[in-house]
Design a protein around this nucleic acid. Sequence first.
DNA 1: CCGTGTTTACTGGCGA
DNA 2: TCGCCAGTAAACACGG
Length: 533
Amino acid sequence: MIIGEQRLSENNYYGETSNQLDGLKRKINTENESRNVNNSYSGRPGIFKNFSSNKMHFVESLTAETYSTYQNSDQIHQDGDQSYINLTVLTPTLIQYDKVTIGCRPEEESEHFNQINITKFQENNEISLKSKPKDEKYEVKNYQQSDNLEDNEDKNLSWLFNFKLDEIANLSPEIKRKRSSHQHHQNHQVENHNHSYYQNNNSNNSTLQQNQNDENNIQRTLKDPCIEDDLNVAENIIICNTPPTFTLHTPKKPPFTYTELIEYALEDKGELTVSGIYQWISDRFPYYKSNDDRWKNSVRHNLSINPHFRKGNKAKAGAGHLWKISSRESEANFLAWEHKKQRLDLFFKMEAANQLKVQNSLHRKVDDETNLNKHSEYVCSQNYDAELNAATASIIKLPLETCSPIIAKYVDTDSPVSSQYYQFQEILPTSQHQQTDELRKTAGEILNGVRRNVEVQIMHPSDLQSYSILNTEDYLNPISKEEIMQESGLGRRHDEFYLIDPTIVNGSEEPTEVFEIFHEDFNLNYFGNNMIA
DNA sequence: CCGTGTTTACTGGCGA
DNA sequence: TCGCCAGTAAACACGG
């Protein structure tokens, strides 16, 4: 039974589906207990490629029936004593790769990675994870590309290796592929910084954790003879059972360039010193809480090279000058700022959303572990579906203990903004009678600029009410092209754009004298650098 | 010395 | 392949 689908990306750090997945795992565990399911190919959630729609689907479990289904559809094949599910992969937030199972570097031999198959580890397999999270062990194997080349981009998973795996939490920090010791050191710095931030800058904790990490790393290095094997893609990546904590402890780099961050700061405050810009940024983005000077160097670099930023008078106190945006007072800049502000607001809303979901997920996990012991009979799929739907649809009101103050202001659940955001977050179909697939963009995709057409959807929204979701195709550019045209004094006839009489901007009249200037492919990036001159 | 500001060089990603 | 862009690193100068 397909219960949902999920964009497959390491950028899923917003944890859109953590609730579903938690519920999924509960469901599977309880079902396995009640049915006494054997270990062959059941009891584990997966994400399965749907060839017809090019989407990844969550599958509740691979039972004998679903196994048979996949077998009949040639998505399962035998290789010796093992069966493999073709084109099956778990989202990187749930499964990570063991170093031994991937034999060559994708960037060098990517043609060999056109199929990735996941099967359970053999219990007696000498290949074992250094850290065994219970029995959840998977093996990732690579296969030669099949003869069938259709839909190569989506069917093969070679793009999976384009992920910046080193950004995934719990990834072994001893990865040294093509990394200088300097970079290695920097990564440690970042990890330290991230932990320390979320631990209220408790340097003792941070140091302790780092020491533990170091010890683990040393142990791994000693135990593992392949540690320096440059052919390994992602060594010792441990299955992560708790993606929510990952999102809690590793603030990801915000999807804004340094130029944008500086713009935000200067637009917000008018003019700031360099240190003021540092402060503005770090106050709002935990990622930049670090004391290291690398990002600050980049900020200064951007201030210097970007003519958009002007150095003003000397600051009254302290060293340096006051910086401002050169065209801040212009009307165009005002409009641009309105747009940028929307984008920034949306970012914080999504961050707040994520924080809530993380809290919810953790809360539920504790509750469910307790309830699971008490109610082993809780295996009814209807109950499960209801619970899953409820988990997905629920609007939680939990205190945010770890989020930044900026994000916290967006989680006032009584505010209209908040309710709007919740509607946005739920990512549910607008109609329970909807028969066709309806795709929604995920926060991660939006904010990281990912352009993969696989998105979150609940496919059994039986008990869910309809929500009004933002229907614009691009949440970060919510102003319609028509609106932009009108404000820009552009007219449109068929697929052509025209300059029109500036007095005719309400769109009610046909332009009396027009000349073609743009076609449909014209980039109406109204607020960007490509703004119409 | 340190924060600030400028400049150069390099790298990786991406699109043409 | 090339150019552009963003990010990063680093050298250097300046001034309090």
